[in-house]
């Protein structure tokens, strides 16, 4: 093959080889997509992840319930006055993941804390009403969250995330 001369002015043969190689590469890459895409959640899983409604009326002050949405445990806490005050009294700047309590609850419904109950360290489920901050304690590696679900102590890097939700009525929320 005349590779030396083709460097200056490509021959028809070179064009053919490049075109064939390019077609093979494009076809191969396109064929790869279904094999990757199939790993994503299937249509029934996505449909099952639709928003859910939760009735809050049976949850008394100081109690909390755990519901599941998209396979994740969601803590819904009916906070006491004391818990709310504690959460608001903290100097936000001193927190590892600074965030005010206001930003983590819906205004007008400050007594309700809704968080995804998955420790931001390595995914264990923290225990409610334990630890030094009147919030959550993760038994796996000792992370402690306060009554606003914010990280206060331990290896976890971030606050417990707040899922998307809204109040449909005073006693009913829709998660998702």
């Amino acid at each position: 093959m005349t590779t030396a001369s083709s460097a200056d002015h490509p021959t028809r043969r070179d064009f053919l080889f490049v075109a064939t190689g390019a077609a093979a590469a494009v076809g191969g890459a396109a064929a790869l997509w279904p094999f990757v895409s199939q790993m994503n959640p299937d249509a029934s899983t996505i449909a099952a992840g639709a928003p859910i409604e939760v009735d809050l009326s049976p949850v008394a002050e100081g109690q909390d319930i755990k519901v599941f949405w998209r396979g994740k445990p969601i803590y819904i806490s009916h906070r006491t006055k004391k818990q709310i005050d504690e959460a608001r009294a903290v100097n936000v700047a001193s927190l590892p993941d600074p965030q005010s309590d206001d930003a983590r609850v819906k205004s007008g419904h400050e007594q309700w804390l809704v968080v995804i109950g998955i420790c931001t360290h390595l995914g264990c489920i923290p225990i409610a009403h334990e630890g030094n901050y009147d919030g959550f304690f993760c038994p796996c590696h000792g992370s402690q969250y306060d009554s606003s679900g914010r990280i206060r102590q331990g290896p976890a890097p971030a606050n417990l995330p707040v899922p998307p939700y809204q109040f449909v009525s005073d006693t009913k929320i829709q998660i998702g």
Binding site: P34, Q38, N40, D42, A43, T45
Partner: peptide
């Protein structure tokens, strides 16, 4: 065949 992405193809 119905729900998995490209499941029918595979």
């Amino acid at each position: 065949v119905r729900d998995v992405n490209y499941g029918w193809l595979l």
